[in-house]
Design a protein around this nucleic acid. Structure first.
Length: 269
DNA sequence: CCCGTGCCCTGGCGGC
DNA sequence: TGCCGCCAGGGCACGG
């Protein structure tokens, strides 16, 4: 669920809490979260200092001394800063700092992944290497040409991080609503004008959501006690049977590419 | 190469 | 009240 705005919110909040902390020890009660031999990971990360926290698409990148730790939160990964509290059921990695505090990675569904690479190899991480630019940095002509040559639903294309980075289920539904485009439309049938409009709305929706600290729906929460406010501005996502904010027609929920999708059947043709 | 499907995983919810 | 079965979904592996 965390998409670009939620991951960016986590990044902004977390960096102020962990910058300059030294990682003294790592516990991993559920080792598969870490995509390496656990002992190698623990030995390699030990004594490195957290210098910065970056983001590429939905990936968080902890910049250490010699290595970068790349974390994808997937559906419901989150972080908490704690001290001596007991380890909870869904805390799958605990980074103990020399200061006595620790950073805990919490993930009920265990979908998230943690990878450690040498700093100059970040761009070789397969997920990051394949990332397209975010909407605000897209070359619209190039994007339009790529869409022209595909035979997939536009929603499927917008979710494909190799075509455009940062959008997930929530922001794709919102983008397509504001652009007045039906999620099942084939990308090859879109006009240049529609693609331009779509990219503009994606850019705007993401920027506005970042401004509001992301959307808090279902389980997403950035850091303990902190809630985003973008959910108050959602036009269609999660709004089944509620009136369309433009034409009052009830919003319907359909499936597109296996994903739950909210649409105004009148505004989106 | 392109596209569709299934997998990972668990809490929550609907149905009875 | 309790239990069963199914759904949610980002990224990736796999197969046609």
């Amino acid at each position: 669920m965390p998409e670009l705005p939620e991951v960016e919110t986590v990044r902004r909040q977390l960096i102020n809490l962990i910058r300059d902390e030294t990682i003294a020890r790592v516990e991993a009660p559920f080792p598969p979260i870490i995509t390496h031999d656990l002992h190698w990971f623990q030995d390699t990360i030990k004594d490195q200092v957290i210098r910065d926290l970056d983001r590429k698409g939905k990936f968080l990148i902890f910049m250490l001394d010699r290595h970068a730790m790349i974390i994808h939160l997937r559906m419901e990964g989150r972080f908490h800063i704690k001290k001596d509290e007991p380890v909870l059921k869904h805390e799958h990695a605990i980074f103990h700092f020399a200061s006595g505090r620790n950073l805990r990675y919490h993930d009920v569904r265990k979908f998230g992944r943690i990878t450690l690479v040498e700093k100059d190899r970040v761009m070789h991480h397969p997920g990051i290497a394949a990332l397209a630019p975010e909407p605000k940095h897209l070359d619209v002509n190039h994007f339009y040409r790529r869409l022209k040559h595909k035979r997939v639903a536009v929603k499927t294309a917008l979710l494909d991080q190799r075509l455009v980075a940062g959008l997930g289920n929530i922001y794709v539904d919102e983008t397509l609503f504001h652009a007045g485009i039906h999620p099942k439309r084939l990308t090859s049938s879109l006009t240049k004008k529609q693609v331009v409009r779509m990219v503009e709305h994606a850019t705007h929706v993401l920027a506005r959501a970042v401004e509001l600290g992301g959307a808090t729906i279902r389980s997403y929460q950035a850091i303990t006690g902190v809630h985003g406010r973008f959910q108050n501005e959602l036009a269609v996502h999660t709004k089944k049977d509620e009136p369309c904010p433009i034409c009052q027609t009830p919003i319907i929920k359909i499936k597109v590419g296996g994903r739950g999708t909210y649409v105004c059947p009148k505004c989106q043709q």
